[in-house]
Design a binder for these strands. Structure first.
Lengths: 323, 323
DNA sequence: TTGTACGCGTTATCAC
DNA sequence: GTGATAACGCGTACAA
């Protein structure tokens, strides 16, 4: 099976036709029904399979898209990967996953893959500054407005957060905190924090913020720090589900009852089935976001103009962590 | 940047050398220090990048490995993907992810990718029967003993499960249940069930089993059914963390206190940070398993003989769900 | 140490 | 509708 690999040329010889005709059979070109059947038969008999690299070399297209994420094992990213892969598969494309672990070098690697023609396009969810020239490269970002040229998909971060905070306020909370990570650069996710700060100002409250360059895995410690800093909080907006869960644990440790002593709303909504008590979350529509990202990329493949900004609505899902 | 793409030939012309010399510079062949420096400079100036498809066509190697999983968003699989990707990256290989959703057609697609030379090798965690000819194909499975030729990596399913059950017994549990999914075919995971049945027999207990072809997402319902069937259980072995979490929820619903009324031990140990209360789990060493899988694959690339069976030890991690 | 020339397996162009 | 043939960009004998 792996022995040799028969070529299009040999198939052509056996069938007494030109290689062009065989190629047309493979690619669905115009071939008489008779010869098509004959060639297909011969291909099946010799279990011929076309060689990807050769086709890619000619067509200047490999049929692969790279997905760049900070860490594929983080639920939001693995869920995104799941949907992206499925939408790519619909178009007979494959997905290559690069888990950058926030290392700049690894992120750059993806761009070189693009230049080498190892992938046709790029979808990325990353948070580094890049001095790369993005002119004319087929790429889409998620949660990041990189340049005026690269379309991006994101959720209604600002609005959703603001509304969630107002909900907490309406339920009586006044000592509302913000807990979350941040990145070295501005992203769409940053707007969750912006919304919080605007809210605090507008409602004339005291800010209770813990926000830093946390690595994945440090959330628990960060949450502990947060509760040390603000032992009196009565509600917290967590900028990701992970922090929401950490808050649940931390509350238990400190004998605080959720949601009576402490309310929690988290962003993402990707751990529904994973938690013992359901978090009240701002649920991102990961499926729609992924579909949009794929669609935007293929629009670029076809040189179709697209909107740069694509905001997908969220849904506030009431769980067990709010009143 | 994407405009044209300069070729090795043009670089050679500019440098007044043959294409062979340029190629040698790229691939680390024997070149005089002087010309090497000159060529490298010219390559940098014209930001030349070698074309992947052309190189792959010649070398008959693309530098890509496919990872086939049922669903990339499931924690155990995304964690595996994370490690596999990182170990592949160490060897300058890329990872393609195929999320089969248990569809046979999609699984077959991966084999065709191998034949087409779109990937060099295959790591798969899947549960379908395949009449594919596995002779001589570079592949490794995880948790599945497919044929005598394909090496596989798994954890000590039987032993670990048996020991966990004995632990429950030692703590006084006598109405011990088994809750988990199963597959259409025998896999290494099946041995967790085998261990349970052997344990029940050996200790002369009554079996309390709910085990079926659950889809991802049906776990909650299945857990409810389980508790309806056996309202009197005092301990449950859950064949995955997901079921462990579902049991926690279900216990809460029914006013059962964990671990006094109900003890839980689950297999996998991949959701540590995700749960409010820490599950007592049989923790698989996913990192070592992934490394082993990658190593086994590359051994095949180099025609090195390898062990077919590779069992990675687990660790019973005491959490909050056992006495 | 270096250059030449051929082949890797396809697709696309063009006459027929 | 079909068959030659020329690319696609690179690696590698082989000769120099």
């Amino acid at each position: 099976m792996k022995s040799k690999g028969i070529t299009i040329k040999e198939i052509a010889e056996i069938a007494n036709v030109g290689t062009g005709t065989v190629s047309r059979v493979i690619n669905g070109g115009v071939v008489s029904e008779e010869t098509r059947r004959k060639i297909e038969e011969i291909m099946a008999e010799n279990n011929y399979v076309p060689n990807s690299s050769a086709a890619a070399l000619r067509k200047k297209k490999v049929g692969i898209v790279a997905l760049l994420v900070p860490m594929i094992s983080v639920p939001f990213f693995s869920k995104t990967a799941y949907y992206v892969e499925s939408f790519l598969a619909d178009r007979h494309y494959k997905m290559m996953v690069i888990s950058s672990q926030n290392e700049k070098e690894k992120e750059l690697d993806v761009f070189s893959m693009l230049q080498r023609g190892q992938v046709d396009g790029l979808i990325f969810l990353t948070s580094h500054e890049h001095d790369f020239d993005f002119t004319d490269i087929p790429a889409v970002t998620i949660d990041r407005h990189l340049t005026e040229k690269i379309p991006y998909v994101t959720s209604s971060n600002y609005q959703s957060t603001f509304q969630a905070l107002e909900k907490l306020y309406a339920s009586g909370a006044r000592k509302i905190g913000f807990l979350g990570g941040c990145t070295t650069i501005e992203t769409e996710v940053t707007k969750r924090y912006d919304a919080y700060m605007d809210f605090i100002k507008q409602y004339n409250l005291d800010p209770r913020v813990h926000r830093d360059l946390f690595e994945h895995g440090e959330e628990e410690l960060a949450t502990n720090d947060f509760m040390e800093m603000y032992p009196d909080v009565d509600a917290v907006f967590a900028s990701s589900d992970i922090f929401g869960i950490c808050l649940l644990k931390e509350a238990a440790k400190r004998g605080k009852t959720v949601p009576t002593d402490l309310q929690i709303i988290s962003y993402d909504g990707v751990v529904d089935e994973m938690t013992e008590r359901t978090l009240t979350t701002i649920k991102q529509d990961v499926k729609t976001m992924s579909k949009k990202a794929v669609d935007l990329l293929f629009a670029q493949f076809s040189n179709v103009d697209v909107l740069i900004e694509n905001i997908i609505p969220t849904q506030l899902r009431k769980g067990d962590t709010t009143l």
